[in-house]
Nucleic acid binder design. Structure first.
Lengths: 229, 229
DNA sequence: TCAAAAGTGTTCATCTTACACCCATGG
DNA sequence: CCATGGGTGTAAGATGAACACTTTTGA
């Protein structure tokens, strides 16, 4: 089977920058390429968009196929179209960025990717294609977005402590924050619900656990009050 | 001549949302389609991306070819890939948004477009394809961006009065601002250079003319001080 | 009883907002 | 001399930044 067009066409792919967080650092998921070009190099999960398939669907599908991840927060980032970015031919890639909580997402490359793993964003291996630039753009977007949109919660477990939340902001924004001011500010926002539970199995005073209250957030958003950390 | 691929490929286009400003309103440039589909309907300037051509180049080229505009501020916005957005086949469009000052840019459709004209954003005709959604996205981006990036200056003449600048913000953000507070704030930012010139041919006290001081802005940006209106 | 992290208020400086009148110019 | 927009300051309230000690818990 083959397809014929009057004019030449670039190929179209999606690539996903998936962020995860643990105690140590902000991480990105990479897969080891099983095929040429850049065979053996680390790259972002992604692949070709099918004709008739929306871009969002393609990103979701590739993520599922290559990393086993589903139902993560996924948002279009930017489209990379430099004709030299792929050595084979002109391949335009629509990049997505995704946030997920690392806990319980042990990655197994359950498909044709050779291998999948999390890497700290400040210690990435050399990447295939222009994927370094894509990760860079995703990081910029994350940094810009996290301060005025409640996206960071996707990186945390469902129930989290204020200290975990503060550390998330500190890791993403790469600056330290004052504990008292941080708590005052986020509690005043009114989007955290106290679960009346506390941490278990910690060898110090157990912290309260909070949840992000999506409904409350939507209400505030409609009222024109804006989230800002 | 024809081109052959092993897998089907979507077509790739760019579309540009070009904003301009006059005393009355924020405007968008549209062209009347000379060919099917949607022949006779208004649409965003744009067209097919050539293989081997970068997306930015394609956007610039299409803008030049279809509207005669050059050297406008042009930035990638979002990529629209719904397979149904073009009735012919799956066409993925990378949308750009552009800012230009309307003065002296009399549009002449100097090419194959039937006609080109400016329309107030709050009074657009029915548009071809999903171009309404694209304009919407561009407006959202403009509103979000103008408050913390000095992009609005692209919409003003090179030398402008503070009142013109204030009106620009009021039109984009759709809310009124206090004259004294506005002036205090923007002058304190330190990115406006007083040209020592004043308006001519006005039948009232002539206002001072200012220029945007790009160098000063870059310095402040490097120092980590951020622009915010 | 010690180590480790949780939790909590006040002060000072800065920024935001609201608000009204005189000035310069051309017709 | 009048119409039109240009230009200016102050006070009150809200917000942001700096800062240190006590509490709880498990080992």
């Amino acid at each position: 089977m083959s397809y014929n067009y009057e004019y030449a066409r670039a190929a179209l792919t999606v690539d996903c920058v998936v962020f995860g967080l643990d105690d140590e650092s902000l991480k990105v998921m990479l897969i080891e390429r099983a095929i040429k070009p850049f065979k053996g190099k680390w790259a972002l999960p992604g692949g070709f968009v099918n004709v008739g398939e929306s871009l969002d669907d393609a990103a979701e599908r590739e993520l599922r196929e290559e990393t086993g991840l589903r139902q993560v927060f996924l948002e279009q980032l930017y489209t990379f179209g430099n004709p030299k970015r792929d050595p084979r031919e002109h391949v335009v890639s629509v990049a997505y960025f995704a946030l997920t909580n690392l806990e319980g997402h042990d990655v197994k490359a359950d498909t044709d990717a050779a291998n999948a793993a999390w890497f700290a964003v400040d210690d990435l291996p050399q990447l295939a294609f222009d994927h370094e630039a894509i990760v860079e753009a995703a990081l910029d977007r994350l940094k810009g977005k996290v301060r005025y949109r409640p996206v960071g919660f996707e990186l945390l477990p469902e129930k989290f402590t204020l200290t975990q939340m503060q550390k998330m902001y500190e890791m993403i924004l790469e600056k330290e924050m004052d504990k008292r001011n941080f708590r005052k500010k986020v509690l005043k926002l009114g989007v955290l619900r106290d679960t009346n539970e506390v941490q278990k199995d910690v060898s110090h005073r157990a912290a309260k656990l909070y949840e992000f209250d999506e409904k409350a957030y939507r209400k505030l958003e409609k009222a024109g009050i804006n989230f800002e950390v």
